[in-house]
């Protein structure tokens, strides 16, 4: 990459991508409202929420929360920037795990039962989606012969044709990462509040804003991973992302939250079966 390209990649990764995801989240809430025959908030609502949280009084039960929220953001941002710099996929995945781990550790610093339960559920979510993401990345490796992102862009055919089942597996991981039903067990958006918002319970005010922004970066990363499945044309890419996200919203609105046992079982059994079939087909087909 030339230095101009690196500069552009940095701008895109650091600013444009999270802004786009902010808008996307707004559209998500709007579409959800329509599905529930409501009108819904303005498209820019997520930005208002963040700005409001930024302007609130800082109030913490343990100041390590501030430390951890910042490292969550750092991990998420670094992983996105690495993606835009076309680094190694497996490495990007491990870097984003840094963020998730610090989110959990932050929630665990406060001896509040809600926060503790949320932290553990978040850990269970992590072990549910981590193997799936690694397998998707391995699938990409088997299809392209390299873990580097540039190898995907060198493909002549969209990856989706080679990895249809792994795309579904990535869908499961995406649902967990987006905190959408039926996998919204550690913390959810919108009105569910049985566990007072789980892992987010003790993050408040500006620190909650940081955590939300970090979550946007995480969504950027996973959408980027999705976009690799149709890397050959912009139209295909946008269509794929749009349809996938719409299906996510549909699933979110038509399913109810399940238990962590069900989540772990589904994610591992379906995910690994699909991955194995797809990988074997790729390897021997």
């Amino acid at each position: 990459m030339t230095s101009a390209q690196v500069f552009l990649a940095l701008i895109a990764g650091l600013f444009l991508a999270p802004l786009a995801v902010g808008v996307l989240t707004g559209v998500d809430r709007r579409v959800t409202a329509r599905l529930q025959s409501r009108i819904g908030p303005p498209i820019l609502q997520p930005f208002y929420d963040i700005a409001k949280l930024m302007g609130k009084e800082p109030m913490l039960a343990n100041h390590w929360l501030a430390f951890c929220s910042m490292l969550y953001l750092a991990g998420a941002v670094t992983s996105v920037v690495l993606f835009f710099l076309q680094a190694d996929l497996l490495l990007i995945f491990f870097v984003q795990a840094v963020g998730s781990v610090f989110l959990v550790i932050g929630a665990m610093t406060v001896p509040s039962p809600y926060s503790q339960i949320g932290a553990h559920r978040e850990l269970l979510q992590i072990i549910a989606y981590e193997p799936l993401l690694i397998l998707v990345i391995v699938g990409i490796f088997l299809a392209t012969g390299s873990f580097k992102i540039e190898a995907v862009y060198a493909m002549e055919q969209p990856l989706l044709f080679k990895l249809p089942l792994l795309f579904l597996v990535l869908g499961i991981a995406l649902t967990i990462k987006l905190r959408k039903s039926p996998f919204d067990i550690s913390a959810s958006h919108h009105a569910h509040q049985e566990i007072v918002r789980g892992v987010y319970t003790e993050y408040s005010g500006p620190y909650l804003a940081i955590v939300e922004i970090a979550h946007w970066f995480e969504i950027v990363l996973i959408l980027c991973l999705l976009s690799l499945f149709w890397s050959t044309s912009i139209v295909g890419l946008v269509l794929l992302l749009g349809i996938t996200y719409f299906v996510e919203i549909l699933v979110d609105n038509t399913t109810s939250r399940m238990t962590w046992r069900w989540m772990l079982g589904t994610a591992w059994i379906t995910g690994i079966t699909f991955s194995l079939i797809n990988l074997l087909w790729l390897y021997y087909g």
């Binding site: 913490l60 039960a61 343990n62 959990v104 550790i105 665990m108 001896p111 932290a119 553990h120 992590i126």
Partner: peptide
Amino acid sequence: TVLYWARWAGLFMTYPF
């Protein structure tokens, strides 16, 4: 592996401030 390490690391820090 991530689960049992992260759990332990977080637990050391669970204290009333």
